[in-house]
């Protein structure tokens, strides 16, 4: 039995200890916001925060998350009440197909806000987006920062 906190809620998990955190979130806890892109740690789509830090949930067996605090994109806002960061992405075209967004939003919400566009690009270096060309994503991040 593994206990962990997901988006502020205590959860228990009793399945195979080596199931990927990504699959436990999606299949066992019904949190399908987190996406699988590559399954190899390369694309960043599956990024969630573990104890406040971005990690690739496709590379983490759930047994290593015992007792940890996990945050997924579902913790940011609801469709009717988006967070400032999510709104900025919608308004500035930081989202097209949206597949990369759950991961990018989690990395963007970890740690201090970027100081410059360069800083924002460095922060998001572990994410791949096939649609936007990144310019709008960086603009979204900078816009959300101004609103804070």
């Amino acid at each position: 039995m593994i206990t962990l906190t997901v988006n502020g809620r205590r959860r228990r998990y009793a399945g195979p200890p080596f199931k990927r955190l990504l699959d436990v979130l999606r299949q066992d806890f019904g949190l399908t916001g987190t996406k699988e892109g590559c399954g190899e740690g390369e694309c960043g789509a599956c990024t969630v925060l573990v104890d406040g830090k971005p990690v690739a949930s496709c590379l983490v067996p759930v047994c290593q998350i015992e007792g940890a605090r996990v945050r997924t994109v579902e913790s940011l806002g609801k469709a009717a009440r988006l967070s400032a960061l999510q709104k900025a992405f919608v308004e500035r075209g930081g989202i097209q197909c949206g597949f990369c967004a759950p991961g990018i939003l989690m990395t963007a919400s970890a740690g201090p806000a970027p100081k410059s566009e360069d800083d924002a690009r460095r922060k998001l270096a572990g994410h791949i987006c096939r649609c936007t060309g990144y310019v709008h994503i960086v603009e979204s991040l900078m816009a959300a920062r101004r609103k804070k």
Partner: peptide
């Protein structure tokens, strides 16, 4: 790698 890789 990336921040995600460096954190694990």
């Amino acid at each position: 790698g990336s921040a995600q890789i460096q954190n694990r």
